[in-house]
Design a protein around this nucleic acid. Structure first.
Length: 127
RNA sequence: GCUGCAGGCCACCUUAUCGCUCGAUCCCGAACCUAGUUCUGGAUGGGGAGGAAAGUCCGGACACUAUAGUGCAGCAUAGCGGGUAACACCCGUCUCCGCCAUUGGCGGACGGACAAGUGCAACAGAAAGUAUGUACAGUUCGGCUGUAGUGAAAUCAGGUAAACUCUAUGCAGUGAAACGCCAUGUAUACCAGUGUUUGAGGGUUGCACGCCCGAAUUGGAGGGUAGGCGGUUAGAGGUUUUGGGUAACCAAAACCCUAGAUAAAUGAUAAGGCUCGACAGAAUCCGGCUUAUGGCCUGCUUUUAUU
């Protein structure tokens, strides 16, 4: 798994996103939240991820953009390390629930914690 | 130096690594109707947010419709002339107002009509429209006429339309989630109501008339789709020069190509520098207006200090 994050690895279909919010399981490590669901779409070969910052918390489009970029960057840098030996594929959605613009360090640590507990949880579910 | 005004410019920078997005060229592989096209992956080398991208307040382009008619209502605009695709914008100018000052300069204006009607109005005054009191004089003996008195104005009208109103001009609606094409799926099924030229039900900004469409339509229960391509970025486009014009702007020539995403592209890390970086993120595209906001430069100006 490389460090790239191209269109194929981003969650784009509105249908999948609706399904994810409807039926997905959640892990919260405030101010970060991960929603996940096994991706059963046979046309997808990758685990897909999407990123959300609520408009309610950040009215400024510039700030929302900034946080989404940080989330995306943190996921891109760490997904290879954590997902190298994963089985199956998932649809993921990472949300930022805080009310202040975080630093990259905070976002990266939060993302790592989320991914660790995500891996623990899915291995536990399998056993 | 400082105060205010007007105009112009910039929007942290440099290097390295990793990453995103869109074209170009090339390579590997796959499919097909095989000199090609499409798709997956990769390499090289490029482009990649704003002056306001914002508010969505005006004006257009463009697209669609069952052709958009008349009257009333409604909304907008308002000296005059010009510019423009168009405007509520811009330029010039007149008038009025304010400030500086005094042949002038700068700024502002919500600038049509009170020669149709209705309304409103401080003080003074008997009275400002449901008029006509007092004193004196005249007299056709009728509150009929004049004078005095208040006031800008007294059967004579004046002011006011950021008062109703009137006049002139303009306004079809919807809005890129428009719209066109392709693909996929389904049920021309079931139940109930209304209806088929004796017209159900619709459309036409609000209302009325008129006009037009019209064989289906409304509800229930149930099933399904919501993917792609075009529209989409070369344009009322920029820059420079020349000519016309007081100016806004126009014309000609040469040169340039400058985002195009679609859960939505500009980021992260490291090092260095300085003045330590404000407001803020394109979503069909243009012209304006308004609001938010850091800094630099130029000109004029107020005031203070020094020479």
């Amino acid at each position: 798994m490389s460090k790239t994050l191209s269109k194929n690895e981003r969650l784009k279909s509105q249908k999948q996103i609706e399904l994810l919010f409807l039926k997905g399981s959640a892990i919260t490590k405030f101010p970060f939240k991960l929603i996940y669901l096994p991706n059963l779409n046979p046309e997808d070969f990758h685990t897909k991820a999407g990123f959300v910052v609520p408009k309610k918390n950040f009215k400024s489009a510039v700030k929302r953009n900034r946080i989404k970029r940080l989330l995306r960057e943190a996921y891109r840098r760490n997904k290879a390390f954590y997902f190298n030996n994963i089985e199956g594929k998932y649809a993921l959605m990472i949300l930022y629930l805080g009310r202040d613009v975080p630093s990259f360090e905070v976002v990266e640590n939060g993302t790592k914690q989320l991914l660790v507990s995500f891996l623990e949880k899915i291995s536990h579910e399998k056993n």
